[in-house]
Write a protein that binds this DNA or RNA. Structure first.
Length: 648
RNA sequence: GCCCCCAUAGCUCAGCUGGUAGAGCAGCUGAUUUGUAAUCAGAAGGUCGGCGGUUCAAGUCCGUCUGGGGGCACCA
């Protein structure tokens, strides 16, 4: 038998017979290692302990402590769950069950829906299987045998999966107990290696087979799993914490906004929420103005003729709100649409009057309200709505100017995200999709220009092939919030096509008319969504400059009410958002209520403050309070209330 | 749009196998003048999301519509 040489992580090598398994290797190193081993990596590839090793390579034995171990737990739990489901309902057909970021899911085909109560029964059966410590074994089958097997068992989805496995790849079968599944592996050694108390089934949902609406809809059961009970507990606690900062809940509690049946996907902003919005919009307005943008305002309702020209009528009509109007004396109804985006309007503004190359780059910005008829199932609080407002702008420029505009945009975006409290962001470069307009020559040119521009900034970016817009390549910017979630907000898109469709042009140095390029760009994306992200990022505890309610001035005794009103007015005169609370309640009650209401500063005033013309300042999240002269307090708070771009 | 789940007072939620609704908080009224996260008392508040159906009887069972939630699909 041939001999092979395996190299271990410590650099040492040993000789083995070809066909040796990683389990045997582990045993040869130490019996204790063989016992705790769950899998291995061979030349970096995740490798089952039972698979034979036929050639020289670098082998590392993995235990549950390794990242591979956690993946295996989740992977095997998917199989154990599938087995449990088929044990309980033998008629259920199994499909696929991959590992996710926090656990796994498995999609089943079954006529009757799984109920939440079924999940408990499935979990119990899973624990029984884990308790049985069934050994897991693997075999490689040839394609015909595997297909025949699943056809005989009435598992059409597995047959399809086998047919999708590329020629030359081994087709592997796994068993534990009398249950069998098709799987590329690797797996644990036995089901007893699974932590029976560190997983939980989270829910049932629908999911299309291979993500295709035209294929059967399956039932997806999802679970979360960790190495041990404490990690599971920590995860569940994290979910509870995330739920506490849910913008829908905070929006109601802090009286920021509401939505109602008569206007699904549209937001009613209340005074507090609108204050937050305006604070953000005013800030963005200043940043854009300073960056050379001109702010404009364009119509909401436009005749379909414009949408036909822009191409939207043809491609996105189902997603547009259509407005039919009976005009006096008209034979036909006039058909309009609420604008789903601002760009065609911005081209109309550009097109007024002849433009010279000296006018470029021309940056037109609009806090543009748009409406899109989003499908009912996609709406989600403020995060996905039908009526939204973008921090939209379009830069009309020459090809030579794309690079500099891109650089300046990224600088601006980075600075804005930092001001708003977000630490970092990722950049994604999306190239031409299959369904697109414009010539390959043009695509080559604009993709090249955009890539050169992003490279020149020296920032890291990922390429996402085929994910560009149909009219041009783009950069997407994804920020990370306080609890590690990522949100795609900013975008920078190069569009050589819309100026063409809508006839934008400029007179160049050569005296001839040329098409400008159009750069679509946004930093926040939609105000609605971004405010939702901000609310969750800060869990409602906004920095002072953003807080819709900045200061409550509360009386301790009613004899201090006049002074409370005087202080409140003085704060308001200094431009601060201050309210008086002279209700007949104890100071404990007022402090609690405004703390729960997430007001950053409470000034409590009793007779001592009246006599000394001082205030007792209490800050949200801090114990105790500071007494200081009124004038000092106003100066201090007015300083803090300045937006980041207005600080000296 | 599709699958599952949900809809009871302003908010959070009870209401077992059908017998025409209950709590806490908020709000209102009154008392209390209070020193940094809930003072006490009283009265009031709901065509149980809409529309149909089954039944002597529906918050409860069935159908349907609307909205919401968790996913899938979609996201110019």
């Amino acid at each position: 038998m041939a001999s092979i040489s395996l190299t271990f992580p410590d650099g040492q090598s040993r000789q083995y017979d070809a066909g040796v398994t990683a389990a045997q290797v582990a045993q040869s190193i130490a019996p204790s290692l063989a016992k705790s081993a769950v899998s291995a990596t061979l030349d970096g590839r995740h490798w089952d302990l039972q698979w034979p090793i036929e050639a020289d390579g670098a082998l590392a034995i993995k235990t549950l402590k390794d990242a591979e171990g956690l993946e295996l737990i989740r992977h095997d739990l998917a199989h154990v769950m599938a087995r449990a489901v088929q044990a309980l309902w033998p008629d259920v057909k199994v499909t696929i069950g991959p590992v996710t970021e926090t656990g796994w899911f498995y999609d089943f085909d079954r006529k009757e829906p799984f109920t939440p109560e079924d999940l408990g029964a499935i979990e119990a059966e899973m624990r029984r299987i884990i308790g049985a410590k069934d050994p897991i074994r693997t075999e490689v089958w040839d394609r015909a045998r595997a297909i025949a097997h699943y056809e005989a068992n009435g598992e059409p989805f597995k047959v399809e999966l086998i047919n999708r496995i590329p020629e030359g790849e081994p087709i592997r079968m796994y068993w534990h107990g009398d249950w069998q599944d098709l799987c590329r592996g690797p797996h644990l050694q036995n089901t007893g290696q699974l932590p029976g108390d560190a997983f939980r089934l989270m829910g049932v949902s629908g999911a299309y087979w291979f993500g295709d609406v035209n294929r059967p809809q399956l039932q997806r059961i999802t679970g979360v799993a960790f190495r041990n009970r404490d990690e599971l507990k920590a995860h569940l606690t994290m979910l509870e914490e995330a739920a506490k900062r849910d913008h829908r809940k905070l929006g109601r509690e802090m009286e920021l906004f509401h939505m109602q049946e008569e206007a699904p996907g549209m937001v009613f902003w209340h005074p507090n929420g609108w204050t937050l919005w305006r604070t953000l919009q005013d800030y963005m307005g200043r940043r854009l103005r300073r960056a050379g943008y001109k702010e404009i305002r364009t119509p909401q309702v436009l005749d379909r003729i414009l949408w036909e020209k822009s191409g939207h009528w043809e491609n996105y009509r189902e997603n547009m709100f259509i407005v039919e109007v009976d005009e006096d004396g008209a034979k036909e109804k006039r058909i309009n649409a609420l604008k789903p985006m601002n760009c065609p309007c911005h081209v109309q503004v550009y097109n007024q009057g002849l433009k010279s190359y000296r006018d470029l780059p021309l940056r037109l910005a609009e806090f543009g309200a748009c409406h899109r008829y989003e499908s009912s199932g996609s709406m989600h609080g403020l995060m996905r709505v039908r009526g939204f407002t973008q921090d939209d702008a379009h830069i009309f420029c020459t090809e030579d100017q794309i690079g500099e505009e891109c650089r300046a945009f990224i600088e601006l975006l980075a600075s804005v995200y930092e001001d708003l409290g977000f630490d970092g962001f990722e950049i994604k470069f999306s190239t031409r999709p299959e369904k697109r307009i414009g010539s390959d020559e043009t695509w080559d040119k604009v993709e090249g220009a955009l890539e050169a521009a992003i490279r020149a900034t020296g920032r890291d970016f990922e390429v996402d092939p085929g994910e560009g817009a149909f009219y041009g390549p783009k950069l997407d910017f994804k920020l990370t919030d306080a609890i590690g979630r990522k949100w795609q907000c900013g975008t920078f898109q190069v569009d050589p096509n819309l100026p063409d469709r809508l006839g934008a042009e400029y007179v160049a140095e050569d005296g001839a008319k040329h098409r400008p390029y159009m750069l679509h760009r946004a930093i926040l994306g939609s105000f609605e969504r971004f405010l939702g992200i901000l609310i969750e990022n800060y869990a409602g505890k906004f920095p002072f400059w953003l807080a819709p309610r900045q200061i409550v001035v509360a009386s301790i005794v009613s004899d201090a009410d006049d002074y409370v009103r005087e202080v409140t007015e003085a704060l308001q005169a200094a431009g601060l958002r201050a309210e008086a609370d002279t209700r007949n309640e104890k100071i404990n009650y007022k402090v609690r209520e405004h703390s729960v209401g997430k007001v950053p500063v409470i000034l409590a005033l009793g007779m001592k403050e009246v006599e000394g013309r001082t205030v007792s300042m209490r800050r949200l999240g801090e114990d105790g309070q500071k007494v200081m002269p009124l004038g000092e307090a106003i100066a201090q708070l007015a300083g803090e209330a300045r937006a980041p771009d207005q600080r000296g």
